[in-house]
Design a protein around this nucleic acid. Sequence first.
DNA 1: CTTATCTTGTGAAGAAATTCACAAGGCCGT
DNA 2: ACGGCCTTGTGAATTTCTTCACAAGATAAG
Lengths: 212, 212
Amino acid sequence: MKRVADSTVRRLSLYLRYLEEFEAGGSSTISSDELAARAGTTSAQVRKDLSVFGSFGKRGLGYDVVELTRRLRDILGLGREWRVIIVGAGKVGGALAQYRGFRQRGFSIAAVYDSDPAKIGNAFESFTVRDIASLKDDIRRQPADIAILTVPGDVAQRVLDQVVAAGIRAVLNFAPAQLHAPDQVTVKTVNMAMELEGLSFALTNPVAARSA
Amino acid sequence: MKRVADSTVRRLSLYLRYLEEFEAGGSSTISSDELAARAGTTSAQVRKDLSVFGSFGKRGLGYDVVELTRRLRDILGLGREWRVIIVGAGKVGGALAQYRGFRQRGFSIAAVYDSDPAKIGNAFESFTVRDIASLKDDIRRQPADIAILTVPGDVAQRVLDQVVAAGIRAVLNFAPAQLHAPDQVTVKTVNMAMELEGLSFALTNPVAARSA
DNA sequence: CTTATCTTGTGAAGAAATTCACAAGGCCGT
DNA sequence: ACGGCCTTGTGAATTTCTTCACAAGATAAG
């Protein structure tokens, strides 16, 4: 299969979000122009993005909302439930553990881990904090798909190595560190300080900064 | 000034992070190759990124760590303290309010706001939750630079309009919504469900997904 | 059936970002 | 002072991404 750009996948997520709104609103068909207006892009971009995966529309008419929603869910792999573990029972981990948006979209939190003996065994949101040392065994018994890392930056690489060794192949990293993993493992890093620095740059160089 | 790509700014942030590590480690000079290896890019990319803002290196020798660190701080606008307000006194807002990494990099949380009467006045981390209605007056008395939005998606646009009306020109949005703001206002959105969908796509289409 | 009106899907053009590749400098040892 | 060795800074080439623009197909009305 042809390589798909990250930016394309992000836009598909956005389109799906708006399609769901339209679906709720009762519209049965939507044009690339309408979707583009909502997602802040152009109709050509919408059609190009979709054309990577096939042709889902009817000329002169647009896209069937229900059909396109289904296809996007398929493409994004949202037809099933993904088991997610959170490593790091701190404030950020807690906020994520109770975040409703995840389950709504098919991501269910399976367990929360930490390495701090003072935390292991404690109640944490609706979970009991488990020992990171038992991760490998746990996963052998009951696989998990995605790990969210909410650990301090200086241990993030070590924790990543552990979850990779346990068989996880997708990681969302909130630690302020650039992580290295084998090719078959996908790591996405969200670095909030870095986002703020982008804003600092924009405030400092109003002319130079792109409109984001 | 020439337009600077968002990706360039993000990489500059990364470079700065590694330079600070090197500085702590005592190295006095660094090559584009070394920086690139750390940041997961190429030496040519590093030099191109820097060349947008000037030429800071010495041929045959590399970059002076202290000097380059200082220049990057200047470029990113980190030479001063930025006043940040958090709107939305929920779990995510709380996690951010107490996050050390922000203050370390010159972003100081000035206040936390909410619109829920049940929350206003309450202690929240080391702050007292203020009424969003008083935002405009507060800011007139004591300006703020950046707003972090940790509110539900369905009110995010309204809250954005409020902070823009109060004079804020940079916003970091954690609400799951695509927001629209005037050109002179920079909005960055972090959507965690969307990041997970990117991972879902990568797991579902191993060949097609870019190595992120 | 024919015409008028839409909107898709997609090559081609254009723009933007990344990588290549090498001349220009600077340092060091002799 | 000179030659050998590095590494920068940057045009040019390449690759990737976005926008343009239009033929092809679909619907609807008369």
